[in-house]
């Protein structure tokens, strides 16, 4: 087992390298980070020139990548602009745990992500729990009554959910439950933010503000997941050992709980495990619309400012999460399913 994990890690590292190179090349397409600096008018030319030099943005892309990767404390930089390098670099590089500083706030990327990540996680974890729970219930229910009215209804609805652009769903929910409910004098939900400053950051406020974004995320994912659960349960139920159990007179409920569900759960675990890190990304639009101060919004805000250390940080974090979850999923899978031997 541990050799397997080691081998997988060994594969993951070059993969992350490739990802970082692809991303870094794409980052070159972004505008000039010192083009506006967030001010309403462009900065003075001499300030731009100096900032590019001091921030290392005048270096060729490969040097910027090397700095990002292994730091620049082994070389001298020209900070005073006389063309002669004289100051020791201070970057350590991502390989030594230095994710760089945001070009916008000048603060460490990891610190800034750290401030936002919990907000994204609280949204994601809640949504994920609801998604898993509801899709298991719905999927199982329709699998046990295949082709019934309920099953067909669920199938139709799941396709609708699956086909809906996230922002359209979000807007519709907002329009109905926030705008119209208020218009009709009904208790309405807040549209944006994490809490109402007039009330404060109470758990109740948090829950109220989470309803709409969590519903948005859940509706779209439940659609796909419940279909998946349904088809894996159906597949298991049609297999010989289940039929045997049934023909031997084992109670139907027992068959479902003892045999069908655990076996059908395996591919489901895989799916969830592989999807979780992408959920972090999927929140971009949801966080944008509901003004949730999470990582997705951080990404969008800093995209507009071409803050590439920040963007690289967020994207690499997600990529690492994807790779790690792939390994974890494989390992969990092998632990749960005795038929699988790693190595």
């Amino acid at each position: 087992m541990s050799t397997y994990i080691l081998r997988r890690l060994g594969q993951a590292i070059p993969q992350l390298f490739i990802i970082s190179i692809i991303l870094f090349m794409l980052m070159q397409a972004f505008g000039d980070p010192v083009a506006t600096l967030g001010a309403r008018t462009p900065p003075k030319p001499e300030d731009k020139e100096r900032l590019r030099r001091m921030l290392g943005l005048d270096q060729p892309p490969y040097m910027q990548y090397i700095t990002w990767l292994v730091g620049n404390d082994w070389q001298q930089l020209d900070m005073d602009g006389d063309g002669v390098p004289e100051t020791n670099g201070s970057r350590k590089g991502i390989l030594r745990g230095d994710w760089g500083n945001s070009l916008v706030t000048r603060r460490p990327v990891m610190e800034m992500i750290g401030e936002r990540l919990p907000n994204t996680l609280i949204l994601m974890v809640t949504a994920e729990i609801i998604i898993i729970g509801l899709s298991l219930v719905i999927g199982l229910y329709s699998a046990l009554r295949p082709y019934s009215f309920f099953d067909n209804l669920i199938t139709g609805l799941s396709f609708v959910g699956f086909s809906m652009p996230v922002f359209w769903l979000a807007l519709s929910l907002m329009y109905l439950f926030a705008v119209n409910f208020r218009r009709w004098g009904l208790p309405y939900l807040p549209t944006v933010g994490m809490f109402d400053p007039a009330v404060g950051k109470t758990p109740w406020e948090l829950i109220k503000h989470m309803v709409l974004p969590v519903s948005t995320l859940a509706i779209i994912s439940i659609a796909g997941y419940s279909r998946f659960v349904r088809s894996s349960v159906l597949e298991v139920l049609s297999q010989d050992y289940v039929r045997t159990a049934r023909s031997k007179g084992v109670a139907s409920r027992f068959v479902v709980w003892k045999h069908a569900l655990p076996n059908a759960a395996l591919p489901f675990i895989t799916l969830i495990g592989l999807d979780i890190p992408f959920l972090l990304a999927g929140a971009v639009v949801t966080e944008r619309i509901f003004a949730w101060p999470g990582m997705g919004r951080l990404f969008i805000d800093h995209t507009e400012r071409a803050d590439f250390p920040m963007l690289m940080g967020i994207l690499m974090l997600i990529s690492i999460a994807v790779v790690v979850f792939q390994i974890i999923t494989d390992v969990v899978y092998s632990l749960v399913d005795p038929r699988i031997r790693l190595n």
Partner: peptide, 29 residues
């Protein structure tokens, strides 16, 4: 153009800086 590109300098291919336009609209001071 997205704002960061719109305001790009000459060496970064900024459309204004390189003169790839006839009329540019924005608010300034």
């Amino acid at each position: 153009y997205s704002s960061d590109v719109f305001w790009n300098g000459y060496n970064d291919g900024g459309p204004q800086a390189q003169g790839i336009y006839d009329i540019a609209e924005y608010s300034s001071v």
